[in-house]
Structure formats: structure tokens, C-alpha cells
Design a protein around this nucleic acid. Structure first.
Lengths: 230, 230
DNA sequence: CTGGCAATGTCGAGTTCTCGACAGTCTCTG
DNA sequence: CAGAGACTGTCGAGAACTCGACATTGCCAG
């Protein structure tokens, strides 16, 4: 059980949920929700990253928050039925525990601890989105690139991240050519190494230097609101 | 009672809150919360606009959502004590009903209708922030300028908005010189007229044409989740 | 009614990113 | 093992915005 939220639940509270949890493996690129979709399942990732993306009419999409083992997708639907506001897409292969929102709702009614967790998680996710607003408006592509890598690195158990520049360009809301330029610059600085569809984190500390404050800010916010985990 | 949330509460539910409501007038520029501040009061605006701004270490700030008569500031603190995640600042003079979060919490415990309202409002505000993420990353300053004016226009009872270009530059996260250029362009198109510290909305429909889809998207989201009001 | 301040106008060099195009290279599949 | 498709490298013109500087104008207080 690597998901921080599930791991933090006392046994009694967890028991309300555990009979209905199923473990699923989600391949990269898998679309979980689109805006307007009814949220019928919640996912607690143990490993990997799910991106929340804001969709524009033009078809452009941009990442507004991410979900990994520190959180859950669709958790707020525990309170009341919900439509998704954004696109939720699997970014790096995810192993997750899944539960239907109806079962989740039942557990939510029974467990005060779970209710508190839902609250805090919602707040942390909101904070994540708020920080993204500022970051996208004010910070350079290079800084955002580094922030993205760090956030991803935190949520998988490897220094190697599988992703294409094209994909990353979408996440960051910029042209692929810009990503190419930034990636090379970072490689020259020795912070990463990359090849076709793969990025290796070489110098995590270096990335932290280049990344904007937003990485730390989001991190602090999660730490304040949610179980730290190990 | 022009605040949509309060107006939508049935008399019984409203009665849990009304003894503790105080009407306040908030002057422009008034700082209500900074990040980390304990939220001890909730504000239900009847008129005017409050901005939520994400603060960066550099001192730069950028608007991530706005609150007017369709919503409330600090409403989520009804559930449990909260720290503010952003700066909340009065953008145009506000008349609001204010209540302490402790009294709000008591009403929240008693009224299912209020609990639902808090939920829905949180969701709408989250949607607002998500849309802002994309808008700041992908859309032109001119489109965002128009969106801002329209959002503001919806929430006050006048075609005249008091604001300086400097202030607006902060909201949009761009240089003042850029705002000056855009303002003149819009004036030449006949959409607005402006003078020292004042913008008049001349052609609202024209502004809607220039504004990005984000205006409509946020509007739809509020309409779906919250009482429409008249 | 005047001095001071706040707000706006304007300029220009510089940077970042866009947008389209095309060539090269890796990898998977049949 | 060959072909197709996906991914990356590179180029260049142009647009958008930054950043600093300074001039001008409106407005308010004394």
C-alpha cells in the first residue's frame, strides 16, 4: 500500500473501503475522464502520475494539476455525485486502487477520518491549481519544465521517466520546438539526459535550482495538508 | 439581499445564519487575506469584486479567481478551520455580508442546504482556477483583458469600472506598457472608453467577441453549480 | 491656483516563444 | 529485414511581450 491517503487511514476507517478496492494497472496515455464526464470511479495511485488537464475549445490542453501517490483522482465525488471539470489522463504507467464512487460515498458517511481526508485533499489540489495559474503566467518554460520533472520524479520510483517531447509540449502548453531547445539546454547543463521517449534525471539538485519556487510551494502545501508518508 | 448564495437559501436555513450577518463596506484595495492567514470571516458580496491572487516570492501576484455576488470568500472554512492559500483583495468597492467562520460552521452543521452550497461553490471556484491556468498559458493579453472586464462587469451594477492600468497589469501578470497598448487598441475598436483610473464598457457584445472562451466556460460552470439568481 | 504625485503615453532594444516546414533517425510490426 | 510511423533536430521569419527610461497629463491637497 503505497498510496499515502490509504496508508494514513486507521484500520477501522480503512475497513469501510477495503472490501471494494480493486487494484488496476493503467497504461500510459489512458484517458480516465473528460470534462463533463460523470465521475463514477475514484483512483488511489500507488505509483505513477495522472495529469489533470484543462481543455480548450481549440483542442489545446494544458496541465493544471497532477495526482500521484500523495492524492487521489475523483476523491471529491465521495461527498456528492460530480462531473469532471478537466481531462484526467495517465502520464506515466499507474498502479492504483480503484473504488466506485458509490462505495466511496458509503465509506465517507461512516468515517470521519475519511471525511477529513477528502477535505484536505480538495484544499491541496486547489492550492496546486492556484500555483499553476501563477506559474504558467509568470515563469519561463525552462523553470516549468524542471518543476514538471521534479513533480513527476517524486511520484514514481525511478530516475527514468518515459515521455516524448511532443507530450511534454502539450503539458506545458508550448511548441514542441521550444521543448526541444530547453531539453538540450538542460542536458548541456548536466541536469538530465534524454533520448527518444525517455528522460533520465541526472542531477536532481540542479533541477531544483533551475525550477521555479512553485515546486517547493506545492510540495509544502501537500505536506501541510496531507499525511506525509515515507 | 443581492448575494446569490444567501438569496438562494430557504428561510429556515437562512435563519441559522442571519443573526450573525453584518453588512460591511470594503474600500478598493483593502487586503482581506494573505497566504497563510487564518480565515476567520466569510464574506458574501452583494456588489463589487474580490480577487484571489496567487503570490510569488518575487512579490509578483496574479489573479487566479474572482469572487462576486455569485459566490463568497472563505466559504470553505465553514467545514473546518482553514488557512488562506492566496491573497484576497478588494478590487472594486464591495458591499458584503460578513459572518465569523465559527458561526458559519454552526449553521453549516444545522443546514443540509448550506452544506450543499459550500460543496458546489468550492467546485465552481476550483473550475474557475482550472480555467485560469489554461487561459494564462494559452491566450493573448487582449483576450484576457476582455475576459477580466466582462467578469467584473457581471458583478457590479455599472458600466463604469474604476481601475488603473497599473493595477490591471498586476492582475493579468504583464507589464503596464502592454496593458496601455491593449487598452488603446480596444478603445479604437470602440469596445471601451477609458480615462485616468476609469474604464467604461461601451460595447459589451464586442468585448465578448474578443474575449477568449474562458469567460463563457467559467460562466457556464457557475451556472451549472450555483443558484442562477436574477 | 499651484506644486507634487499618481497615472498614462511613448520609445526601442532585446528576449522568448510561435508557427510552419522539412530532414533525419529510431523502433516496431508484419 | 523492410517499410511505416513516431519521434527528434534544425531553421527562420515574425509576433508578443519584457524591461528600463523618460515625457506628459490629470488630479488633489494645501
Amino acid at each position: 500500500m503505497q498510496n499515502r491517503l490509504l496508508a494514513s487511514l486507521p484500520a477501522d476507517d480503512f475497513a469501510h473501503l477495503s472490501p471494494y478496492l480493486t487494484t488496476v494497472e493503467l497504461e500510459r496515455g489512458r484517458l480516465l475522464y473528460d470534462p463533463g464526464d460523470r465521475i463514477d470511479m475514484a483512483y488511489f495511485p500507488h505509483d505513477g502520475v495522472i495529469s489533470l488537464m484543462t481543455l480548450m475549445e481549440s483542442g489545446a490542453a494544458i496541465e493544471s494539476a497532477t495526482i500521484g501517490r500523495e492524492g487521489a483522482l475523483g476523491l471529491h465525488a465521495a461527498v456528492t455525485p460530480r462531473q469532471s471539470l478537466s481531462r484526467a489522463i495517465v502520464q506515466t504507467p499507474v498502479r492504483a486502487s480503484r473504488v466506485s464512487t458509490s462505495h466511496l460515498h458509503e465509506a465517507w458517511q461512516k468515517s470521519a477520518r475519511l471525511r477529513e481526508l477528502v477535505e484536505r485533499h480538495g484544499e491541496a489540489l486547489f492550492g496546486h491549481a492556484l500555483q499553476s495559474v501563477g506559474c504558467n503566467a509568470l515563469h519561463s518554460v525552462e523553470a516549468r519544465f524542471c518543476r514538471w520533472l521534479l513533480t513527476c520524479h517524486d511520484r514514481i520510483s525511478s530516475d527514468t521517466i518515459a515521455l516524448t517531447q511532443e507530450f511534454l509540449a502539450d503539458m506545458l502548453g508550448v511548441q514542441r520546438t521550444t521543448v526541444t531547445a530547453v531539453a538540450r539546454s538542460l542536458q548541456e547543463k548536466g541536469a538530465i539526459r534524454y533520448r527518444r521517449g525517455v528522460v533520465d534525471i541526472i542531477d536532481r539538485h540542479g533541477l531544483e535550482q533551475i525550477a521555479c519556487e512553485c515546486y517547493a510551494a506545492i510540495h509544502r502545501n501537500y505536506a501541510r495538508l496531507l499525511p506525509a508518508g515515507g
